[in-house]
């Protein structure tokens, strides 16, 4: 009991420290002032209207959503297949293959971005959504492999054998037995793939060019050239959206544990 009050205080301070920037940005986003100032003189939806009235901001938003959706489709299928294959490899090969697949998590983002930039500039993939999707897929696959791998660890391979003995083709056994049972892991992986792509800035700085400016990229540019509270409104919306997705992932994981 003696430890309780200091622990509570410490925890509150840490949470406050973590939440303060978000609270400040949210407050500023509802400001009525024409410039970034705190505390806001009055509240209003002026900057949300500015965001929704800007073709550039909306185009970037839709591009980011589109790139993230394509990344989810690609990374989730590739990652799930990779996780399945990893489970079937002999131990030594599995360790090597897993290290290779997970390397984008370990290599510094800027290094990955430069590497991708050099390769893609040769293939004309700069300033194209395709380039962004491919690069983001590389970054998102590790998350899918990790979460599907965790689901597979609890999956009894004999269920697959049972399905095969009962007349299911390899694909039929996967679709009717394996996939439904590892679905929570696949969905969590898909959510992380979406967030990875949707929030991604470093690779976008190199690959966006002028033709494919994603939302994080436009926020970055906006901060550098014109500071007005629109960015706060966009940031607040992005945070709310991401929080919703993470909440969804949490619920899925809860269900998977049951």
């Amino acid at each position: 009991m003696r430890n309780r009050p200091p622990l509570l205080l410490l925890t509150s301070l840490v949470l406050l420290f973590l939440a303060l920037p978000i609270v400040l940005i949210a407050a500023v986003s509802f400001s009525s002032a024409a410039y970034l100032t705190f505390p806001p003189p009055a509240f209003g939806l002026r900057w949300y209207r500015a965001y929704l009235g800007s073709a550039d901001w909306l185009a970037s938003t839709w591009l980011s959503i589109g790139v993230a959706a394509a990344t989810v489709a690609l990374a989730t299928s590739l990652g799930t297949l990779a996780a399945l294959a990893l489970g079937r490899l002999p131990r030594a090969a599995r360790t090597a293959a897993a290290a290779l697949i997970l390397s984008p998590l370990i290599v510094p983002g800027i290094v990955v971005a430069i590497g991708i930039y050099y390769a893609f500039s040769r293939w004309g993939l700069i300033g194209s959504p395709v380039g962004l999707v491919l690069a983001h897929t590389c970054l998102a696959v590790p998350f899918v492999v990790t979460s599907v791998g965790a689901s597979l660890a609890n999956f009894d391979r004999r269920l697959e054998q049972a399905a095969r003995s009962l007349g299911a083709t390899p694909w039929g056994a996967f679709r009717q037995v394996t996939l439904p049972l590892i679905r929570p892991g696949v969905l969590v992986g898909a959510l992380f793939a979406f967030i990875t792509s949707f929030d991604e800035l470093i690779v976008a700085l190199f690959l966006s060019g002028s033709g494919a400016v994603t939302l994080p990229r436009r926020m970055w540019d906006d901060l550098r050239f014109a500071i007005d509270p629109t960015i706060a409104a966009v940031a607040t919306l992005t945070i709310a959206f991401t929080a919703l997705l993470l909440g969804g992932a949490h619920l899925l994981r809860q269900r998977a544990l049951r």
Partner: peptide, 11 residues
């Protein structure tokens, strides 16, 4: 085929 731990599909 009947498996050791039944291998019923839990879902």
């Amino acid at each position: 085929m009947v498996f050791q731990n039944y291998a019923l599909f839990p879902h």
